[in-house]
Design a protein around this nucleic acid. Structure first.
Lengths: 359, 359
DNA sequence: CATTGATGCATGATCGATTGTGCAATAAAC
DNA sequence: GTTTATTGCACAATCGATCATGCATCAATG
C-alpha cells in the first residue's frame, strides 16, 4: 500500500556520469520536496508505521515497544529530519491543539502586549496559538473566525471584537467555545478591564493635580456605543460628582479612537473655548497621539498647563513629561483570568471578570 | 462506511418526557460537538461526498455537476454551518496554504507593523498567515520553526532571527523555502533595510543640527555582532569622516538593544564625560526609551541640548519634542519586496534586497 | 507436556476532503 | 435503429497518523 516504487534501470557505461548527476538531483529533490513520513521511517527501521507512530508520540511504553527499537526509530527520525504531519495527526485525533485569537491591531502597546502574552501562556498550556489581526474590520472578523474554524481551533478568543456574539454564533454549531477579551459579549464569558473603577481613580487623580481654571475637564476619544467607553464616561462623571461637579454633554468628545479624529475634535473644541481645559481624560494612546498633536498645533505644550489622564499605557507617552498620568490595563492578570477559564472548561456558566487596571 | 448509526428505541409512554429531554440534549450536544462533514451533507442532499466536495470547493463546473444540485448542496451547507476541515483538505492536497512568520517581539512599531502588513499581504495573496513571536529566544526560534513545519507551512519568513541559517537548515530537508527579513542570512534570500545609507543620512542630519561642543557624537544601542548594527556604525563613521572627524571606539556604545542596557551604558558614559555629547545616534526605539530615561535621571532634557537621531520610528517618540530625528524603516516596500520574491518562486538564486528607510 | 501469561510487534480501520476513473442515461449524428 | 458524444453523477483510492485488536513467541507454572 505505502510502497514508494523505485525503478532500477541498467544503463550503458556511457551514461554513468549522467546517471550520477541524475541521482544527485533526485536525492536533492527528494530531500527537498518529499517530507519523511512514518512509513519511510518504518521501512528504514524494518518495522511498521504504527510502531513508529507510537515511538514518536510517546506512548510506546503503553504499546510495549522495546527500548531498543524505540531508540533506533528515534535516531532515524533525527537523522532524516522527520517532522510530524499535524494535519494527519489532527484529522485522526480530532483534536488540533490550536487556540485562536483575533485582535483588532498590533500597533499599540495594549494589543501587542495581549498578543504576546497570549502566545506565551498558550504555549505554556500546551496549545499552538494562532493570532490574527482583523484591522477593525467587522467583515474580516467573521472571515477570520470562519478560517480559524476550518483549521479546527479548539478555542477562539475574541479581543476587542465589534460583535463578539456573532462570532459566538458562528462557532457554537461547530462546538468551538469562544471567550471575549477587552470588550464583553453576552453569549460567552468575558475578561475585561474594570473600566469604571479605573476611570474613576484616574479622574480623581487628574482633578487633584488640576490647576484652578474656569474651563473644566474634557473627555476625548472612544465610541459612545462601546461598552468600555460608556463605563469610563460613567467613572469620569462620578469622580466629578464626588467633588460636586456635574459633567455636561459638551465635555464629552466621543469622537472615535483614531488619532486624527481625536485631533480634529479637540481642535474644534479649542477654537470655541475661551480657555483650554484644566484636565483631559483621553480614552486610549491612539487618541492621545491626536490630542498631543492638536495641542502642539494650538501652541499648548503639555507642560504644566493641562493635566492629562490617559486610559492606556505607552512608554514614550509616559516620557512626554508634563502632567500626564496613565493607567495601564493589567494584561498579565487579564490573561491569567482568561486561561483559568479555559482550564476550568466550558461547563461553567457565563461570567464576566473585571480586572482593575493599575495607575 | 460513513453511516452514523442512530438507534431508535421504543419506550413506554411514561418515559416520553424523559425521552424528549434526552433528544433535546442530544440535539444540543450533536450540534455542539459534531461538526458537519461533506458526508453529512451528501446524505442530506441524497448525493455523494465527492459531489459535495466538488460543489463546495468550486470545481463543480469541471466535474459537470448540475446547477440545480450545486445550489441545493450550497444551501444545505449554509443551513448547517458547514466549515471545511482544513486538516483533511491539506492532507489530501498536500498543500496547506499556510505561510509562517517568526518575529522577535510585537511590542514596538517596527515589528508590529511588519506583522500587520504581513498578514494583510499574505491574505491578499491567498495564503493563511501564521505569525508567532519568539521573544528573542534562539531556542524558541527553532522550536517555533519546527512547529510551523509540522503544520505544513509552505513558506517561512524569519524576521530578525538570531540564526536564520539554522532555521533554513531545518526547513530545507522538508522542502520548505525560507526568507529572511530585517536581518540577512547566507542560505536564503533576504529583505533588509539599507542600514548603511540610512545611518549615513541620519548622521549627517544630526551633525548639521548639532551645537558646537567639545564632546562629539555617541552611538548607543545594538549588538556589535549583528549585521544591522555593523552597517549602521559604518554609516555613522563615514558620515563623520566626510566632515573630517574620526570616530573613536569609546564613542560606540553597542550595549544591546534593551532599554535598561542603553540607560545604564549612557549613564556610565555621562558620569565620566566632562560635557554631554552634542549628538547621539540611537539604534532603535527600544534603546531610545533607555536613553531618554537616562537623560531625565541626569537632568538633561532632550530640548535643544542634545540632538538625537533614532534609527526607528515611534509616533510618541516623535512627539517628545526637542531635536529628535527618526528614520522610519519602509515596511510597506520591504514587504512588497518579500512577496514579490515569493511570487517569483524559489527557483531564482539567493538575493539580498536593501530597502532605503525614510527620514 | 499442556496451559497460562506476558512480551513485542503487525494489521487494518479510521479521520474528512480530493480526484482519477468509470458507468449509466440522455441527446445528437449518421 | 445503431453508433457516438455529452451530461451527470457515484465509486474508491489516497494523503499520514492513530489506536483497537490480534497474533506470534517465549517464559513460567502446574
Amino acid at each position: 500500500m505505502h510502497n514508494r516504487l523505485c525503478y532500477i534501470v541498467q544503463l550503458p557505461i556511457k551514461c554513468q556520469c549522467l546517471l550520477e548527476t541524475f541521482m544527485r538531483m533526485r536525492a536533492l529533490t527528494d530531500q527537498n520536496t518529499k517530507k519523511t513520513t512514518i512509513y519511510d521511517l518504518a521501512q528504514l527501521a524494518g518495522t511498521s508505521a504504527g510502531t513508529v507512530s507510537a515511538v514518536l508520540n510517546g506512548n510506546w511504553k503503553k504499546r510495549r515497544i522495546s527500548e531498543k527499537l524505540a531508540t533506533k526509530v528515534r535516531n532515524l527520525a533525527d537523522e532524516h529530519g522527520y517532522a510530524l504531519n499535524m494535519q494527519a495527526s489532527t484529522l485522526r485525533k480530532e483534536k488540533s491543539g490550536i487556540i485562536g485569537m483575533v485582535v483588532p491591531m498590533y500597533d499599540n502597546r495594549y494589543f501587542s502586549s495581549i498578543a504576546q502574552t497570549f502566545e506565551r501562556m498558550a504555549r505554556a498550556a500546551g496549545y499552538f496559538p494562532i493570532v490574527t489581526c482583523t484591522q477593525r474590520d467587522p467583515e474580516l472578523e467573521l472571515t477570520a473566525a470562519r478560517t480559524m474554524l476550518a483549521y479546527q481551533v479548539e478555542y477562539l478568543i475574541c479581543t476587542g471584537a465589534t460583535d463578539p456574539d456573532k462570532i459566538h454564533d458562528l462557532c457554537a454549531p461547530a462546538g468551538v467555545p469562544t471567550l471575549n477579551l477587552d470588550l464583553p459579549g453576552k453569549k460567552a464569558s468575558s475578561v475585561i478591564s474594570d473600566n469604571y473603577a479605573g476611570a474613576f481613580k484616574l479622574t480623581k487623580k487628574i482633578l487633584a493635580a488640576a490647576p484652578e481654571r474656569s474651563q473644566g475637564s474634557l473627555f476625548v476619544g472612544g465610541r459612545e456605543a462601546d461598552h468600555n467607553t460608556q463605563e469610563r464616561i460613567r467613572g469620569f462623571r462620578d469622580a466629578h460628582a464626588e467633588i460636586g461637579i456635574t459633567v455636561t454633554e459638551d465635555q464629552i468628545l466621543a469622537c472615535g479612537y483614531a488619532s486624527q479624529k481625536a485631533a480634529a475634535a479637540l481642535s474644534r473644541f479649542l477654537k470655541d473655548a475661551a480657555e483650554p481645559p484644566a484636565t483631559m481624560f483621553v480614552n486610549s494612546t491612539i487618541s492621545l497621539e491626536g490630542v498631543v498633536t492638536s495641542l502642539r498645533e494650538n501652541d499648548l505644550a503639555t507642560q504644566d498647563k493641562i493635566v492629562i489622564g490617559c486610559f492606556d499605557w505607552d512608554p514614550f507617552a509616559e516620557l512626554l513629561g508634563g502632567n500626564i498620568f496613565m493607567v495601564r490595563q493589567d494584561v498579565e492578570t487579564m490573561m491569567n483570568a482568561l486561561f483559568s477559564i479555559i482550564r476550568e472548561g466550558s461547563e461553567a456558566e457565563i461570567v464576566t471578570i473585571e480586572v482593575p487596571p493599575v495607575l
